[in-house]
Design a protein around this nucleic acid. Structure first.
Lengths: 189, 189
DNA sequence: GTCTATATACCGATAGAC
DNA sequence: GTCTATCGGTATATAGAC
């Protein structure tokens, strides 16, 4: 369903079993370094089944990086604190799976269809709805720049930050980066 | 089409010839999709020479993505306008090559040594010196968050923005995003 | 210094038996 | 539905002739 944390429930069928192992391997080792054979081996089934169920490796990748059920940030609160809420949303510990999926999309973004998926997903989760809440000039451009900020912090948090970060450090980063995002939310001079 | 076009001055020897074509191909098609054989073909030499001169494909990649002579942004001006200058620096049309190299590093960042190179390069060009100019609390954290912003805008500009962008649109983006960066430069409350 | 030839290995995908 | 077997292609890297 979503690309969030691996669910505890056992897969209902082989197709789901393949998708689950594929998502974990794509997230962890990237598109190119993950082979159909390796996914099959991890799932304990034959490589031919992967192709049978998904048609191709690229289709499998696009399937598991869909982020279809992924919730977007809550945009209904006060505009004055939206910056902080956006950053808190993308850096939340329970959203680690989403961040890994974004990194997998970014890393594979030299494939045209993956790049299109990344653009679509970023727009849907972080730009389009935000844009509608902005007033003042250049609302659309500002929303896109907010999307760039969120992609940047997702990336930096994934690439540069150790797995164990204290709650205090996380809160401080959310507060500081939230202020910077807020600057693009507030109507410019 | 595409094959890579070597940059300005003619290479002095075979090693340099290989490096130039390799850089262009890595930037354009990514690490995995660029084969040693393709680099050799573009350079008009034998694939074995690539390995002979650089030892391995990974070494070649790390060599050409060093950004060794890449100038950092000018940090000596007034602090009050540093945000704008940082953004103008990374989005400057003449820095397109640098942005492509960053994207190549990001896309290959599931390799440990590439990730280390990306961290080192980001720190050297965008974080360390900025950090020294900041006053107030959390200077180091704020500098890292600025680095995340710059990585984000480099990425968004490369992935999402059409090649032809008007000077007015560029200026507007620099102004708006510069304000957001400035928010992290100014000492927080 | 450069090339030919090749070793060794993995890849995605398919055909067809059970 | 699942597996065996394999096709046709790719890759990095090496050994050695010229």
């Amino acid at each position: 369903m979503t690309a969030a944390e691996p669910s505890a429930a056992p897969p209902r069928n082989t197709r789901e079993l393949i998708a689950r192992f594929a998502r974990d391997m794509f997230d962890q080792r990237g598109y190119s370094a993950t082979s159909v054979r390796a996914v099959a081996a991890a799932a304990g089934i034959d490589p031919a089944l992967v192709i049978r169920y998904f048609g191709s490796k690229e289709e499998l990748f696009l399937h598991v990086t869909g982020l279809a059920g992924q919730p977007g940030p809550d945009l209904h609160g006060p505009l004055a604190t939206l910056g902080t809420r956006l950053v808190a949303h993308v850096l939340a510990p329970e959203r680690a799976g989403m961040r890994r999926t974004f990194m997998a999309l970014i890393r594979a973004s030299d494939y045209d269809r993956v790049r299109a998926r990344l653009q679509e997903t970023t727009g849907r989760l972080f730009v389009d709805h935000v844009s509608q809440r902005l007033s003042g000039p250049d609302a659309e451009l500002r929303a896109k720049l907010i999307g760039a900020q969120l992609l940047g912090i997702i990336q930096a948090w994934t690439l540069m930050v150790p797995d164990h970060v204290s709650e205090a450090d996380l809160d401080r980063a959310v507060e500081l980066y939230g202020r910077a995002v807020q600057q693009l939310i507030d109507a410019p001079a």
